[in-house]
Design a protein around this nucleic acid. Structure first.
Lengths: 221, 221
DNA sequence: GTGTACATGTAATCCGTTACATGATTCC
DNA sequence: GGAATCATGTAACGGATTACATGTACAC
């Protein structure tokens, strides 16, 4: 949350939700809206965020949040003290494959194909977001996120949005990789029964291993 | 848990933990040991698993669990009724990149490199597991998992372990992809400042997009 | 005889979700 | 006038973790 607020501008909980869904979601998180409101209140309690009610002449009553100096300090401390942990992945499709003995081969393959469909849809969303971001700063765009929300108007164009864009590009490539992985798995599944045959899977399995060639395999003797 | 038990053989909670850490971990889950014990008791309560105390002549007192017919039925129902949801990813490194404006460029790059190191280590573990699985069924291996645990000795060789191996192969490729993604990100980070320059990033960004070829180039103008 | 692996649990807590509740505004 | 979107919350619950507690067996 603090990270979202660290970009220039003030935002409502609702804004943050939409923004998170269009960016953080692809590589980290898509918080429930209820959690956002709760967290914003908590952050304000800690002195890391400040909020302001909307002017009475505004059409809608809302509460806009911004990060405070203390919040910025805490965030900066976090950002360069704590190590980024390993990525956490929960992949229900691969789990199903792992449990493949429970299903008919046909259904398994169908599942993989469905997954690929979903992945393509996701990829499209990411590309849309990327396009939006580009258009946004080509026109010299407005607010403070890439979504096109309404709000303050600090007008920090181009620069500052560099890193979010890099992350989004990572997400794009990630989805592409996901498609390739699914395809490879489909091929593995299609392979004839295992009796003896240790199919070489083409010219696959190259290097990219550890540093030294000789490695004396520590784990298994 | 039921899925783990669906493979032939009886196992203790401790066995399951080790096994999960050597397989499920790479694509789905690494449950806390305390949760495993709790869950096993719950499953037994539901009639989905049965347990047996070790014989008094065994060196250690332990409790071995097996899946029941009801458990198998419930699992099968789950496996082909419920849709596998989308994969859930929580990638702290990419989050740090997204928040790159908070850090010095140097530190960011270092983080990415550290991540690559970790990824290579992970990749090695996966390959070891794969090698272990191969060796295991070449020798006509024993128990009921790929880890080399002790236990029953139902002796289901080769077949039945096909799908776990496919999942593991997926994990191997996944880590390779992760390395490539990190490298690409490193390149993005190294790119000169954004003022105007919209660097084309080489002959990258091929097809694999949606269905139609003409797509009105969303990402880059 | 000391450290590691085996083996099983309890208690407190956290992060996050779903379901529920409410109401204003805008678009068609 | 009705649906979608904007906007904010409360309550109950769930999955999972960490910290704590305990004890045996084996290897060096």
């Amino acid at each position: 949350m603090l990270g979202l607020l660290s970009f220039p501008g003030e935002r409502t909980g609702y804004d943050l939700k939409k923004w998170a869904d269009a960016s953080l979601r692809f590589f980290y998180w898509s918080p429930a809206i209820s959690q956002i409101y709760a967290e914003l209140r908590r952050l304000e309690g800690l002195g890391y965020a400040s909020s302001r009610r909307s002017e009475p002449d505004e059409p809608r009553a809302k509460r806009r949040y911004a990060i405070t100096a203390a919040g910025r300090a805490a965030l900066a401390r976090w950002a360069d003290t704590s190590e980024p942990g390993p990525p956490v992945l929960k992949h229900p499709l691969v789990l199903r494959i792992w449990l493949g003995h429970l299903a008919e081969p046909e259904r398994l393959a169908t599942r993989v194909r469905e997954h690929m469909e979903r992945t393509r849809a996701e990829l499209k969303e990411i590309r849309d977001a990327l396009a939006r971001a580009d258009a946004h700063d080509a026109t010299g765009g407005g607010t403070g996120d890439g979504t096109g929300a309404t709000g303050g108007g600090t007008g920090a164009t181009g620069e500052g949005w560099r890193h979010p864009r890099i992350a989004l590009r990572w997400s794009e490539r990630h989805q592409l990789a996901e498609l390739e992985l699914a395809e490879a798995m489909l091929a593995d599944l299609a392979e004839p029964h295992p009796p003896g045959a240790r199919a070489p899977t083409e010219g696959d399995r190259a290097d990219t291993g550890a540093d030294t060639p000789a490695d004396t395999a520590p784990t298994d003797g």
